[in-house]
């Protein structure tokens, strides 16, 4: 039968390993992403970008490219078949929850899944999960648009951040932390989306419009007024849903995810070369015998040093 699960698995399994290069790639991509999100505050009023209505389109292409590259780096660094399958299934859960929660303003359980998934399966997985979930639900429900790269990056950060939260808190402290983080992250998500798309949605001839080169405070005030007038209800709704979702089902979902991490992960495979192996037959396997070949490196693209099965 399958491996006995529900063991006290590790608190946090890194389903996607982050090597040194992957971390550098994530940091760089996040810097580019931040600049792209905040372009109305950074742009030189003389630049062509400042006056064209299609600035988010140009930047959207840049963000999409950056997302592609960073995913290449993540996949190359260490993604195995279990991580891919988990990513696919969790993204499908996110997409399937969307129609379930449709109807009410901003009710999106997607962020709950993102926060909890990133928490248990690690920052690299959280990043990939955010991007994949948003892309999949857009493909399925028809939400593809120029905003998609931005949404993917924003959601990827939400997952990444959840994976980077302090490890220590457990029990109800953990839930409070995650609910608070979820609420903040989903509010920030809405505000960031507004920031980069506000000049695009509103055009240039209203009193709330983006004015290139105007003092930062003025533009921020106009952005705030625009947000209050349009999306704040949704953003608050989403934040509340996320926090309530974490509070209601956080504990069982965390337990489910940890159980899966323990089942899927990534306990090392050990081969005992000793034939009789009595010590394994009647002892617990925690005591690793002496003559072993550890083949746990299976989940990276690197091959273990011994026993290369295929010719180059």
């Amino acid at each position: 039968m399958t491996a006995p699960a529900g063991r006290s698995g590790p608190g946090r399994a890194a389903a996607v390993r982050l090597g040194r290069w992957s971390v550098v790639a994530l940091v760089l991509a996040s810097a580019v992403g931040l600049a792209a999100f905040g372009w109305p505050l950074l742009v030189n009023p003389e630049a062509g970008l400042a006056h064209a209505t299609d600035a988010p389109l140009v930047l959207g292409v840049v963000v999409a490219g950056v997302l592609l590259v960073v995913h290449l780096a993540l996949a190359d660094g260490g993604m195995d078949v279990k991580a891919v399958a988990l990513l696919g299934l969790l993204a499908a859960v996110g997409a399937a929850l969307r129609p379930l929660s449709a109807g009410a303003a901003g009710v999106e359980l997607v962020f709950t899944v993102l926060v909890l998934g990133g928490r248990v399966l690690g920052p690299g997985f959280g990043f990939a999960l955010g991007a994949t979930t948003l892309a999949t639900s857009a493909l399925l429900t028809g939400g593809v648009g120029p905003w998609l790269p931005f949404q993917m990056l924003g959601a990827a950060w939400v997952g990444l951040g959840a994976g980077l939260l302090p490890r220590r808190p457990r029990g109800s402290a953990e839930l409070v932390m995650l609910a608070g983080y979820g609420a903040l992250a989903s509010l920030a998500f809405g505000l960031a989306m507004n920031l980069s798309f506000w000049p695009f949605t509103l055009g240039s001839d209203t009193a709330l419009s983006f004015v290139p080169g105007a003092p930062l405070g003025d533009n921020l005030r106009r952005l705030a007024a625009f947000t209050v007038a349009t999306s704040l209800g949704w953003d608050v709704g989403r934040a509340v849903t996320t926090a309530v979702g974490v509070a209601l089902v956080g504990a069982p979902v965390l337990r489910l995810l940890r159980r899966t991490a323990a089942r899927a992960a990534f306990v090392p495979a050990v081969f005992v070369t000793d034939r009789t192996a009595e010590h394994v037959a009647d002892g617990s396997a925690d005591r690793v015998p002496e003559r072993v070949v550890d083949r746990s490196a299976d989940r990276s693209t690197e091959r273990p040093a011994t026993g290369e099965p295929l010719p180059r």
Partner: peptide, 18 residues
């Protein structure tokens, strides 16, 4: 992009049954 395309393809294929 095989890994990610596979994950997305799985999600697209599985979502209706979910």
């Amino acid at each position: 992009l095989h890994h990610l395309a596979t994950a997305a393809a799985i999600a697209v294929a599985v979502a209706p049954s979910l």
